Simulated assay, not measured.
Amino acid sequence: MTILITGANGHLGRHVIARLLARGTAPQNLVAGVRDMSKGDDLAAQGLTVIPLDYTRPDTIAAAMEGVDQVLLISSSEVGRRTAQHQSVIDAASAAGVAKFVYTSAPKATTSDLVLAPEHKATEEAIAAAGLPAVILRNNWYTENYAADLARAAETGIIAASAGEGRVASASRADFADAAAVILMGENHIGQVYELGGDVAWTYAELAQAAGEVLGRDVTYHALSPEEHAAALAAAGLDAGTAGFVVALDAGIRAGALGDTDGTLSRLIGRPTTPLVDGLRALL
């Protein structure tokens, strides 16, 4: 069984590889697709096959599928370009006749109003249209997403956002990667859509409290209106488009887009998910 991991040298990709190896997958059964081959030397040193795979170059994607049984498509980080990039991977996997296609999507991708959801919805629809034997992993937020907030809190004692009382069921990248490893190594998952999140959904006030515990100082949450948030981001140097995107993300959180948790992730990986405090502490 040969498994191709796209974006293998990224944060999530590296965690997935680590968990596959830890769970007993032989390195020679893993193919690491990387855009920049110079960044895959350490993976090759572990015994993996490292190949060029660029979401914007379909020829590299088709070549990467040769002899592959399973594919993990880690969603592209290029917001606004993902749908076309993912389609190239879907087309190549379909032509290659892979036995299992796993995709890292977003929470409730087909019904959510979250600003990130449409591209994931389109990708899920493309996977279904291609008739691929697929498993969809709808990953909630990574706790690592809050590294910048933690750094600012260390300097200012403030976490500012317009998320209101919305909750986030975050978990560590390692937790989500472990779930991907379980799916890739296991059977009877084809056709499943898994909503994955941390065991505890927290508010931003609780995020501030956890940050204070990690940093050893008082940290408070400043709840901003969307307008105040946009103005603060602009004052910090963000362009209007980026600031609007961040405010829109917080609007989704405020509306509850990331607040659901039913224990599916912890059941898949066979252990509790990483608590918020521990996830933040790891960022230090």
Rank of each mutant, 00 (worst) to 15 (best):
E213H: 06
L280Y: 00
A208T: 04
E187Q: 13
I253M: 01
T220G: 02
A251S: 13
V277D: 00
G191T: 12
G198K: 12
L184V: 12
L184K: 09
E206Q: 10
P272N: 14
W202K: 10
S172C: 02
L265G: 07
A257G: 03
A169T: 10
G216R: 14
P272W: 11
L184H: 07
T242V: 09
D199P: 07
D262F: 08
A248I: 12
L258V: 10
D175Y: 09
R173T: 15
L184Y: 03
A174C: 06
L215E: 13
L238I: 09
A208C: 00
G263T: 13
L258F: 13
F176T: 13
T242M: 09
A211E: 02
A248T: 15
S170E: 15
A171P: 04
P275W: 05
L284M: 14
D278K: 08
A211N: 02
V219Y: 00
A211K: 00
R167V: 11
G256C: 06
V219G: 02
D260I: 10
D218Q: 14
F176W: 04
V277R: 08
N188K: 15
T273A: 01
A236L: 12
L268G: 04
L265R: 09
G198S: 04
G256Q: 10
A171Y: 12
R271M: 03
R254T: 07
H222D: 15
S170Q: 15
D178V: 10
A210R: 06
A232H: 08
F176Y: 09
G252W: 02
L215A: 06
E213F: 01
G263K: 12
V214M: 01
G164Y: 00
W202T: 12
G279Y: 00
V168T: 13
L207Q: 11
A169G: 09
P272E: 14
Q192F: 07
R217K: 15
A236F: 10
G270P: 04
A257I: 08
H229V: 06
I183A: 03
H189M: 09
G166D: 04
L224M: 15
L265T: 12
D278R: 14
L215F: 03
A230T: 13
A230D: 13
A163M: 08
F245C: 06
A171G: 05
F245T: 11
V182H: 02
A231P: 01
A171D: 08
A163C: 01
L249D: 09
G270R: 14
T274N: 00
E213K: 15
V246N: 09
F245S: 07
W202E: 10
V214N: 05
R167Y: 06
A235I: 13
E187H: 14
A251R: 15
M185S: 09
V193A: 04
A171S: 14
V246G: 03
D262Y: 11
V247R: 06
A210L: 02
A210T: 07
E195H: 01
T220W: 05
A231Q: 13
G198T: 12
G279P: 01
A235H: 14
Y221W: 06
D218T: 15
I253R: 05
M185Y: 07
A234C: 08
A208E: 01
L233F: 02
L233G: 04
A231I: 12
A180Y: 08
A205L: 03
L207P: 01
A179V: 07
